[in-house]
Amino acid sequence: MRRHGLDAKILAGGQSLVPLLNLRLTKPKILVDLNGVSGLDHIRETSAGLRIGAMTRQSGVERSAIVREKCPVLAEAIRHIGHLAIRHRGTIGGSLVHADPAAELPAVALALDAKFEVLGDGMARAVCADEFFIDYLTTSLRPDEILGEIIFPVLQPSSGYAVEEVARRHGDFAVAGVVAVVDLDGEGKIIGPRVALFGVAPTAVRARAVEQAMIGQQPGNELIRDAAALLRDMLDPPGDIRASSAYRKRAAAVLTVRALTKAVQLCHTRRLS
């Protein structure tokens, strides 16, 4: 990559890049295929969290017992990606580096404050999720760097979570979507709420104002509705053929209510069991 710079592209699962190549919309001179590179395909539990190699296939993550147990929101989000045949090839790192704002994985990474292990010329550096996604289809990876692994924190067994999205058809890219994670303390008050939205901005975005409004509060319909209403001043989504800006804004708020409600409910259920 250092030699070829912008003439080269990294090929991971190819489920986003190869369509562009087939349409001749991008014409790199060199393709560097990571599929033959060893050491990038693994899921390991460590004290820092789940370390997932960038070339781990999405279907592998989705089916991983350890992911389902320790970070179930990740498995849940992946089920929303395309179709199984796509997830068999599509990699977790490929989706994150592609940084499509309508994709689920960047939002999960943001919501959970995942860490990105970036490999460069003999060096490795760690980038946190909110510094990784820069703009539309743009990350802070430098041209001579690749993503090595992603560290997702382990969720508390009592955590509630939900992924809600509107897509025009089953399996489509979301028009708008939300990843929500919450926990409740001994008194049933909200702790550590995390809300990230996708499809409503040039990158996935964290809804910190919504989170702030919920911390330490007793969950309830009104609280959730009022918190989600804060999105109105926060978002200025793009409009395109799939949905207008106004629609996305409205859908984001509705989905946030639904996701938080579901997450809180799940929290109650998991605390009881």
Binding site: G14, V18, D33
Partner: peptide
């Protein structure tokens, strides 16, 4: 595993 053969290169 099912895959899209249009999104893979033969060399892969």
């Amino acid at each position: 595993e099912t895959v899209r053969s249009c999104l893979l290169f033969a060399v892969q």
